[in-house]
């Protein structure tokens, strides 16, 4: 009887030993998976498809969308990729939209800086193109030191350095002004 019990004990011991070896070998073949992709050092939060709305006096003032955003808590700055900014009810221009390849959002100061193929279009048909543009949500100002081109169906205007208040409908172009005023409206591409 004693022999049988001893044999059984050996068998159990052997089984446990084999199991331990299998687990140990399996465990070694797998490198620990990077659970979280390593964020650049100064970035606290990395987002995709950012959607940010600024409300003022209970009314939607502007909306910022970006394909990519990297937020730094200490500076309060978000670096943006492929952004689109919509300014609602901007005076006589109606809704105004701006797109650009790169940008930053400083939330506290309500400041959006955009660069790289910046295009601004208005509901009333104006179109502005430049390489860099800053929108100050506090002062409602669009500013740049770069050359700009502004067109609508009757006019083409070029200059360098802009300061524009959309709500008041006032704009200053600082130098190198060239303008062509057409007697009639140009046909829109879609009309031709």
């Amino acid at each position: 009887m004693m022999n049988l019990r001893r044999v059984l004990a050996c068998l159990i011991l052997l089984a446990v030993l084999v199991l331990a070896i299998v687990i140990w070998r399996h465990g070694r073949s797998l490198d620990p998976v990077e659970v979280l992709e390593a964020l650049p050092e100064q970035v606290d939060l990395s987002l995709e498809k950012l959607h940010y709305t600024q409300n003022e006096e209970g009314r939607r003032s502007w909306t910022l969308d970006a394909e990519r955003a990297e937020y730094q808590r200490d500076t309060g700055l978000a670096e943006l990729g492929d952004l689109s900014l919509t300014l609602y009810e901007s005076g006589r221009f109606g809704d105004v939209s701006m797109t650009a390849e790169h940008g930053t959002l400083q939330q506290e100061q309500r400041l959006v800086e955009a660069w790289g193929n910046v295009v601004v279009t208005t509901a009333t048909g104006e179109r502005l193109t430049t390489e860099r543009l800053i929108y100050d949500g506090g002062k409602k100002l669009l500013t740049t030191d770069e050359p700009v081109t502004i067109t609508n169906r009757r006019m083409e205007l070029k200059g360098t350095g802009l300061q524009g208040n959309l709500e008041q409908g006032r704009m200053l172009l600082k130098k190198d002004i060239w303008m062509l005023l057409l007697p009639e409206e140009r046909k829109a591409e879609s009309d031709e």
Partner: peptide, 17 residues
């Protein structure tokens, strides 16, 4: 009035209102 007007200058201030 049927011809375009071309303008050059150093600076421009526009006031829509």
């Amino acid at each position: 009035s049927s011809l375009p007007i071309e303008v050059t200058a150093n600076q421009l201030e526009a006031d829509q209102q």
